[in-house]
Design a protein around this nucleic acid. Structure first.
Lengths: 209, 209, 209, 209
DNA sequence: CATGAATGAGCCTTCATTCAT
DNA sequence: GATGAATGAAGGCTCATTCAT
């Protein structure tokens, strides 16, 4: 009993930083960086203001740490899609499906985008970081898939920046979700189907007239 | 010089609200709603804090008025595209070009989107308004263009929500511009070409294998 | 018609100061000196802020003028009681009745007392003035009535400051009216009767035991 | 000197609310509710503005708490008079003496009346409270003393509201003290003597003529 | 480590007063 | 005389941060 309590306490302490980061995420999401009060974050954890400052020097550093905390490199998030075998088209489709699933299930990912848009000018590092671990890998992955498909004749040759256009519907979907929250319901399957339909057709040589 | 002195009180007063709204736009863009100080808006106009309150009751109402001030209905913005004649494909392409031009030239439009994303939860009305005068007309216009093209055989039949996918690359382009500001240069022509290339191919019947 | 209009306008202007003083009275009563806004006084008159300053230099001077405006010397108010003939007791009773009527009907008198109590430390002159035209005459009148009654054997000899005690129930009645406004109803006749009953008995020689 | 240093944080904190309430009393007395600045209250305590808000949510709540702080039920204040034995007249006189002593010594009681008169319309609760713990008990106590005296033949039968008339001279004395502060000196003994003289005579059957 | 009292800089808003028209 | 735009000095309240316990 005593043992367990000690353990629990020790564990508690070890978890504090993460608890704080999670609480910070919720509060910053709800009110934005400036309007969020350190005290509210503390309350959410069940501690007092001072405790936050034991673990983080300033509200600003806490915010940055929170952003890092929720920024998981895209590769990890899409790891399962690397195992997929099949045609380039099949793999492309699978990857896009995973992205929609991510957008829908991963609230932290979604809100990360909001932070990048809303607080980007205040925290330029998060923009850069976001580009490096997110946008850039995403474009690269897409591009390499396209290249494979083109090389093996599945896809027609495409102009520069085509990969951006290919993932754009998913980005627009994400932005719509950010904007409308729960005020408008966006059906994943409908959007996914339209998306896949567009790009798979868009990658084919058109029929001769 | 003479110009300024010529302004009568009445003229000055008539311009004040717009001056303030313009200044407010700049400040709110730079710092976001919460971090913007009414005094900074006043300084930018060249008046003192109190003057702002002669024209707007609260900072909140000033923000909302500013949003209304910069929210021009999409129809107006795309008015010139209504005169275009030609095939559905030609008109679709023209309209998309106009959207890119709008995104690039109309900073107010761009920042409006940022406000919608960043302050939407604080100002739900701006989200609804934005949907009504922007998103919705955009989707309708696109959809009716698609419908025409499908009816006259130019385009293949498409699934639901396809119009969203069709404009998505422009939206993604806008979001990228918001996120990267001037830190990364996005070439309009490259993106536009990829966009048009994708959707025009995506609307054709694929060639038989 | 023209004549009349001109006259009316001229009259209007001549009345302005009084209109303002009356409006000031209402506003100062409602909110007290500090919380009253010059603009509200102006609105009540139907003019704008600036106009007030045409007639009064500062809010402070306006307040003082308003106080003077409502401070009618007690002699005037009790003029009718001077004509009374009869025994000292009869005249005493009559005078007290008049005081109760005054308290009930003259809201300005009542509120003047409130101003003296509430704003006296801010405006010491009004306290002095109030003493000179109100308290002091009241005490003198009472005292001379008492003296007459004592001289002619109607009343027993009384100690110093007895006149204050004699009018005290009316003062207490006034204070109660100030405190409770309309929240508690104080019946004039009941109080008056108790008052007169007390002092007429109190002025007689007691019966031997 | 040593005393102050000895105060632990905990002790300091325990005293703070009372320190603040006492300081608030002084400032509110000096300037009235509206004109008093929270910062001045803080200075008087020797802390800064923010500290006041650690203990009281708003200036308004601080004022109300201050009023409660100085509102001691009348029973407590007149407790010693309950032990008095003697005739009704003796007890009545004793009680009145205590009231004068209270008025003279208890500045908080006096100023409470001023607050009730001056701020009553802004804080109706304090008026009601004041009636319940002050006016009403006072009237009841007086009335029951009168009733006793009447029952045992000491006093003649009296009309309704007579008890109000009986205490009125003390109330008038209090009001005079409020109005004239130290600008006019009111001699307690003179007023008390006149008061007692009036009511004791006023309660006797008059001598036959 | 955790607490929470205290600080002090800061910001929104109000309002008496001025003055050009 | 009347107006009302503009000023600027306050003042209520907030909150990140510190530090003694």
């Amino acid at each position: 009993m005593d043992d367990q309590k000690k353990l629990t306490r020790a564990e508690q302490k070890a978890r504090r930083p993460v608890q704080i980061l999670d609480a910070a995420f919720e509060e910053f999401v709800e009110r934005g960086y400036v309007a969020t009060r350190v005290e509210d974050i503390a309350s959410r954890v069940g501690v007092t203001k001072g405790t936050i400052y034991v673990y983080f020097e300033t509200k600003e550093q806490l915010f940055e740490a929170m952003i890092r905390h929720i920024s998981v490199p895209l590769e990890e998030l899409l790891a399962s899609s690397n195992e997929i075998k099949g045609t380039a088209a099949e793999r492309l489709q699978k990857r896009i499906e995973l992205i929609y699933d991510l957008i829908i299930k991963d609230r932290k990912l979604r809100e990360l985008i909001r932070f990048v848009i809303a607080e980007g000018s205040r925290f330029p590092q998060i923009v850069d970081r976001h580009h490096d671990i997110f946008i850039d890998p995403l474009e690269r992955q897409m591009q390499s898939l396209l290249d494979e498909g083109i090389k093996n004749g599945e896809f027609r040759p495409t102009p520069a920046a085509f990969s951006d256009a290919v993932i754009a519907p998913a980005i627009a979907f994400l932005v719509f979700k950010l904007i409308f929250e729960d005020r408008r319901i966006l059906d994943r399957d409908t959007y996914l189907k339209a998306h896949v339909d567009l790009i798979l057709h868009g990658l084919c040589e058109p029929a001769p007239r």
